[in-house]
Amino acid sequence: MNNDASDSLFDELSPDHPGDWALSLSVPADPGHRDELRAGGKSSGDALAPAWDSFFEHIGTDGLADLSRRNDNLQRQIRDNGVTYNVYADASAGLQRPWALDLFPMLVSPQDWAQIETGVLQRTRLLNAIMGDLYGERELLKRALLPAALVQGHPGYLRSMQGVKPPGDTWLHIVGFDLAHGPDGRWWVVGQRTQAPSGLGYLLENRIAIARQFPKAFAGMKVQRLAASYRALMEGIKRMCPEGENARIALLTPGPYNETYFEHAYLARYLGLTLVEGNDLTVRDQRLYLKTLSGLEPVHALIKRLDDEWLDPLELRSDSRLG
């Protein structure tokens, strides 16, 4: 939506339905591109998609006329909260670049989300089973369902992990997926990241920031809340610890120069975890401990935010001091 031209257009247009107003102000997507705003995803459509029609109905014409101020508030909130994504290659932007966030949310219908949830859960179970087999019985290799050279020659394959059995046979606690619309408008998984995926902190900050700009729409549309997902993650980790609810969990970060360090600190604060770097930890008698002023304290679970090869200088990269 073109906010710069909105003030003059608001004086000329006065439809009864806010959605019609929004549609008249929007710029159609280029031919061949999906138009999220319009019904059917086509830029030639003359009606809003149902979710967007409901969104604009909730914010009303006053909300449409106030978009510039809300966008200014959003950008100010991003700056005040220090939300950054560190960029090493962009000298002009400096190391810490403010997080880029659109004013309007991405609306996903309950029906689409049900399809996404089913698909990503299925793929996560498959990926976890593959990990368990490749570091365990290796039936996939014995039956030639996967080429041995593809697995053992992969730079991400860690021979020192062969035979290791994680608690609950769970290799993947957090997985990130890249999603895109297919030609038929359905959601497709186009990629995944299983190794210390980023996003959980930015996701939460995005939701809070946008919800503050459109509180009536978020309440009226009954947007699904996120807190239960984070609570389930922590409860699942604690169930795998012998100490249960009393387990001490730490979040391992490579440090403040990592590109997503903001997220590491944000997540640790939100989840009530101890944020640690490699030098804060030590291993004694095959147990992990946190160094404190009062002595060593046991760490029962560790959420790592660095790739596997940097985790252990003894078994993996000897030049790494991050793990």
Rank of each mutant, 00 (worst) to 15 (best):
N258D: 06
V108R: 00
N71R: 15
I130D: 11
D35N: 10
L302E: 03
M131Q: 03
S6V: 15
R38H: 03
L226V: 11
G19V: 13
L23R: 11
A301P: 09
G185L: 04
L126V: 08
I237L: 13
R159K: 07
A265P: 12
L267K: 11
L158C: 04
W99A: 15
I174R: 00
Q195K: 13
N206F: 10
A301C: 01
E205M: 12
S229L: 07
D4N: 13
P15S: 01
L150P: 07
W171I: 09
V283P: 07
L23Y: 12
S294Y: 04
A219P: 04
L23H: 11
G45M: 14
L140G: 07
P183D: 14
D184P: 00
P313T: 07
D312L: 01
L9R: 13
A47K: 11
V175L: 00
R305W: 05
R123G: 05
G163P: 00
G32S: 14
Y157E: 00
S6K: 05
F214A: 06
S43K: 12
M234F: 00
D35F: 02
Q115L: 07
F56W: 14
Y266K: 09
G119M: 01
G168S: 07
D307P: 05
V151G: 04
H300R: 02
T292F: 00
I210Y: 09
S8E: 05
A47M: 12
N73S: 09
R70Y: 08
S320W: 05
P110K: 00
L233R: 08
V27A: 15
G63E: 01
H300S: 10
E315Q: 09
I208H: 04
N128G: 02
K142W: 03
V283L: 01
R38T: 08
S318P: 11
K222D: 00
C241L: 04
P15Y: 04
A100C: 09
F218K: 00
S160M: 06
D53K: 06
M240Y: 10
H154Y: 06
Y85N: 12
K165F: 09
D11C: 11
